[in-house]
Design a protein around this nucleic acid. Structure first.
Lengths: 221, 221
DNA sequence: GAAGAAATTGACGGGGTGTCAGGATGCGGT
DNA sequence: ACCGCATCCTGACACCCCGTCAATTTCTTC
């Protein structure tokens, strides 16, 4: 569709070459079909054949681009993770207080989810109760970035020395689970969700048990 | 195996009848095999044939007991939910303070997970990053019971009037995600996990935005 | 334009799915 | 003890999905 500078403008520096072009196009065809099919049937019920059938390509071609439906799913998730991760990291780096750190994390996340629920619907089957969550390398990297940011904030004295691993896990758990609830009621209200989650953690980090490694001791009363 | 009072003691009130017996036994055979297979291959890769092969039964017999591998999985999850749900509810009913309410919830949950990781491993593939979470009716009932308990606590004046739905979601999210982390490092320390999660929420509920329906207003500063 | 590289196609062997007719087995009545 | 019935078990079957591969088409390069 987006055939800008195909043969209209100067074919100056590397015009992609028709080979490269259809390659990128086919990949996109498959990804779009997969999003469609996953949203319709749910990840579990969807099949590589379903995806390729929603495409003008032949079944064998699928395997030139992805090894399995799992890998397509990963690619879709990675797209999402790559879109949001830098934003989250950047905002957290600018934070100078606990409040800013927590608030901007949740604010950005919930707003992203609300605006991108097509991708998030992919994860759940409509009529089914099965939820599939795939922690792709990109997603895991996002989690670890959060943990690193927490550790950096502790080092700066911004956070008390809490267990960064558990705090990261808790933030992730609340973010995903509350997002789920948020999507369940129209109209979506990412601001309310973010305020809720932020308040919980802002108060929480002040009283979390301190733990440099694995020891436990109560924080401030 | 457990053939107590089969033909030794008085065959008084309804001895189950051989038919019923083998039926219950076959069901258990399938469930045990399924637990084994899921733990070994992961839910996604496991197949009805794998399960039935780990059993002396024929393939067709499987479908006399369950419609699909999904239904077996549900049955297993329901067993777990039924085992822990009454315990959680009972302890929360006894709670007279926010601290007790929160603490006993997490304490019981994490100790259960640590002692029952066979069932929890079922949910994750060993080498794979795909996580499957199935919210069966029993599990959902457990979530709603938590929300009801929260609402009851609010009515009693024990909790401030927070958004019970979000609070429930947050507790669930933290419980599952922190449990995941807890299981990742040996030896498991459910006490530390519970202390962490409890501290977070005990402080949190004091400052959560109050919301009777969907409105938002800050709680105590 | 021809030779070569690269990508596409669809048929194929292997295996999983759910079903069903036929056989086995416990149950109740005589 | 035996028979007829209902129930359950069995494994073969038809169908579909998977991933591969030789043949073919399409692009690139000289």
């Amino acid at each position: 569709m987006d055939t800008t500078l195909l043969k209209s403008s100067r074919p100056r520096l590397e015009l992609p070459g028709k080979r490269e072009q259809t390659k990128a196009q086919n990949r996109q065809l498959i990804l779009d079909a997969a999003r469609q099919v996953f949203a319709e049937l749910g990840y579990g019920a969807a099949t590589v054949r379903d995806i390729i059938r929603a495409t003008p390509l032949a079944s064998g071609t699928f395997y030139n681009y992805f090894k399995s439906k799992e890998e397509v799913f990963q690619a879709i998730r990675d797209e999402v993770a790559l879109a949001i991760r830098p934003r989250l990291h950047e905002e957290r780096m600018k934070a100078e207080t606990v409040e800013e750190f927590i608030t901007c994390t949740f604010r950005t996340f919930f707003e992203f989810v609300a605006s991108d629920r097509v991708n998030f619907r992919t994860i759940r089957h409509a009529a089914d109760t099965t939820r599939v969550r795939m922690d792709t390398p990109e997603v895991i990297a996002g989690f670890e970035e959060l943990r690193n940011d927490i550790e950096a904030a502790i080092a700066k004295g911004m956070f008390p020395p809490v267990n960064a691993d558990y705090l990261m896990a808790a933030i992730v758990g609340v973010a995903f689970e509350v997002a789920e609830r948020m999507l369940r009621s129209e109209p979506h209200d990412p601001v309310a969700a973010a305020e809720f989650a932020s308040a919980l953690f802002i108060a929480g980090v002040r009283t979390l048990p301190y733990a440099t490694q694995a020891g436990i001791s109560s924080g401030t009363a």
